[in-house]
């Protein structure tokens, strides 16, 4: 039990980077970008093929980031210069990326199990610190039977993800970031304040997909393989994280919303882990669970608000009726 939640949190913080990317396109730019399904795999593919060919792991991960940026920018160019509708630009890019990813990998699956990855390297230098021992002893003392083999991934990835979150928070408050947000909010207005909305969209989608590809690269190294089909439904996973997080944590400010997105990704993973533990659901049902979660997260808050509104009106009506009755008696 504990170990499956622990694993869910590990993959959750990696997926959170992807969710932050989806937040940039979907919320900030108001651009439903389906490139994500392709660029996640592009990140995994570039990292995997680089590592297999002996590129240092950090550099391989960086290559993946750049590849994602290029893919996202191309979607932006299709939309702004080619004047293709946002949804369609993303779908076209996603479809094209499927073939491109296959070209990059040369085969539909690259195993990384015997390769040295960022995480195996991390683990080596981490084990000297003795943090694992301390935390494991603590867990054993409170009665957890199968403690995780390393804490390095969870702790370091949490730090990395939060640094990225803080970077996004800062960027969205810079002069360029403000213009980017305004592009998603009111394009006509920001053009009248001399911002090149085409460039902003291209850069914004580039950044978004760079994060998605980074997450793909890290996930491939975490899971030990890159697979051509690992990106299917990724956009919905990203959306699920964004929407679940927003409905739990709220969207009062940028800082809070990005925190919501990160937590949403982790919560999503934990919920899925729980769902998969039940008797009648298996791994093939994952996409169904994801869609179900998004639907619930979208519908429930609206139903609640609606219910609240009806209650409020009823209360008001009753109070008014009572008051009128009182006046009636007073007169008669």
């Amino acid at each position: 039990m504990f170990i499956s939640i622990f694993n869910a949190m590990e993959s959750g913080v990696i997926y959170a980077i992807m969710a932050l990317g989806v937040y940039l396109s979907f919320r900030v730019l108001d651009f439903p970008d389906l490139t994500v399904d392709g660029s996640f795999v592009t990140g995994a593919a570039v990292a995997a093929i680089s590592i297999v060919n002996g590129v240092p792991t950090i550099l391989a991960t960086l290559f993946a980031l750049i590849a994602g940026f290029v893919a996202g920018s191309l979607t932006g160019i299709l939309n702004t210069k080619g004047r293709i509708n946002p949804l369609l630009s993303g779908i076209l890019m996603m479809t094209a990326l499927y073939s491109i990813n296959l070209r990059i990998m040369g085969q539909s699956n690259i195993p990384l199990l015997n390769q040295s990855t960022v995480f195996t390297q991390l683990r080596e230098s981490w084990s000297d610190l003795g943090v694992d021992q301390a935390l494991t002893n603590m867990l054993v003392s409170i009665g957890i039977e199968r403690p995780p083999s390393t804490w390095s991934i969870l702790i370091i990835m949490t730090i990395v993800t939060f640094l990225i979150k803080l970077g996004i928070d800062f960027y969205l408050k810079t002069e360029m970031g403000l213009a980017l947000r305004a592009t998603g909010d009111n394009e006509k207005m920001i053009r009248s304040f001399s911002a090149n909305t085409d460039h902003l969209k291209i850069v914004g989608l580039g950044l978004s997909n760079a994060l998605v590809a980074l997450a793909g690269a890290l996930y491939a190294q975490y899971a030990g393989f890159s697979d051509l089909n690992m990106g299917i439904g990724m956009i919905v996973v990203g959306l699920a994280s964004v929407i679940i997080g927003e409905s739990i944590v709220g969207t009062k400010s940028i800082t809070r919303t990005t925190l919501a997105v990160v937590l949403g990704a982790v919560v999503y993973r934990i919920v899925v882990a729980f769902a998969l533990r039940s008797q009648f659901l298996d791994t093939g049902d994952m996409k169904l669970i994801t869609s179900g979660l998004v639907i619930i997260a979208l519908v429930i808050p609206k139903l609640l608000a609606n219910h609240k509104e009806i209650q409020r009106k009823r209360k008001k009506r009753l109070a008014l009726e009572k008051q009128m009755e009182g006046e009636h008696y007073a007169r008669s």
Binding site: F170, K173, E175
Partner: peptide, 9 residues
């Protein structure tokens, strides 16, 4: 009428 930079807005 200025260039947008990476400084805080």
């Amino acid at each position: 009428n200025k260039k947008r930079t990476l400084k805080l807005g």
